[in-house]
């Protein structure tokens, strides 16, 4: 059976749309996985151990040496600035108590990117 021309057009438009919808769908699944990995690293006492000093939603027994990490998208709209703060907090405060995670090799570059993605999602 042959579909009427207008139906063919409609179905290809639908196909096109679902493709477009699917793409961000894949991307956001990846992003969610990254955020989850970042969270693990941030909470792990042997890795970021950010809870030692910062309150983070969902984390137990948090310290209060640093500011609570909330509303981070509003406070750090620029991802690179947030990443830089986590990479080496001494740039903003030379005498900071916060660990220079990047330069001292406490976290790898890739791990810092994941942590920053998670922190920006808070």
């Amino acid at each position: 059976m042959r579909l009427p021309a207008h139906l063919t057009i409609i179905s290809s438009i639908i196909a096109l749309f679902s493709c477009l919808l699917l793409l961000p769908g894949i991307a956001s699944a990846d992003a969610a996985a990254d955020i989850e990995k970042g969270k693990k690293l941030a909470f792990d006492r042997k890795k970021g151990n950010c809870l030692a000093c910062h309150q983070i939603q969902g984390g137990d027994l948090a310290g209060n040496i640093g500011p609570p990490l909330i509303a981070m998208k509003a406070r750090f709209p620029d991802f690179e600035k947030l990443r830089a703060q986590i990479y080496d907090a001494r740039i903003n405060n030379p005498n900071t108590i916060m660990i220079p995670f990047g330069p001292y090799g406490v976290l790898t570059d890739e791990e810092i990117t994941l942590v920053a993605k998670y922190i920006q999602s808070l």
Binding site: C53, L61, A62, G63, I65, I97
Partner: peptide, 14 residues
């Protein structure tokens, strides 16, 4: 000094 001077009285974890 970081832990026992500047941040004494604060909480590090628990």
């Amino acid at each position: 000094a970081d832990c026992h001077y500047y941040y004494s009285g604060s909480r590090i974890r628990a």
